[in-house]
Simulated scan of single mutants.
Amino acid sequence: MDGILLKIYIAESATIEGRPAYKYLVDYFKRKGFLGCTVLRGMAGFGHESVIHTVDVLRLSLDLPVTIEVVDEEEKIMAVLPDIEKFVEHGQVTLQNVRMIRKSPK
Score class of each variant (00 low, 15 high):
48 H>A: 15
51 V>D: 05
73 E>M: 10
37 C>R: 05
69 E>C: 02
63 D>T: 00
85 E>W: 12
43 M>C: 08
86 K>I: 10
103 K>M: 05
89 E>W: 08
106 K>C: 12
3 G>S: 07
45 G>D: 09
45 G>R: 14
22 Y>W: 07
83 D>Y: 10
80 V>K: 02
92 Q>E: 09
73 E>N: 10
68 I>M: 08
65 P>I: 13
10 I>P: 13
82 P>E: 14
57 V>R: 13
14 A>C: 08
33 G>R: 11
87 F>E: 04
88 V>C: 00
89 E>S: 14
65 P>G: 08
72 D>S: 06
101 I>M: 07
98 V>W: 02
54 T>A: 00
32 K>H: 03
15 T>Q: 01
60 L>A: 15
75 E>Q: 14
97 N>T: 11
78 M>V: 02
33 G>S: 11
62 L>F: 15
65 P>S: 09
13 S>C: 06
58 L>Y: 14
75 E>W: 06
28 Y>K: 01
75 E>Y: 09
60 L>P: 01
68 I>R: 14
97 N>G: 06
74 E>L: 06
14 A>R: 11
34 F>Y: 12
67 T>Y: 11
104 S>E: 14
23 K>S: 05
4 I>W: 09
104 S>G: 07
62 L>A: 08
83 D>H: 12
84 I>S: 11
88 V>M: 13
28 Y>A: 00
86 K>C: 13
66 V>I: 15
81 L>P: 11
89 E>F: 07
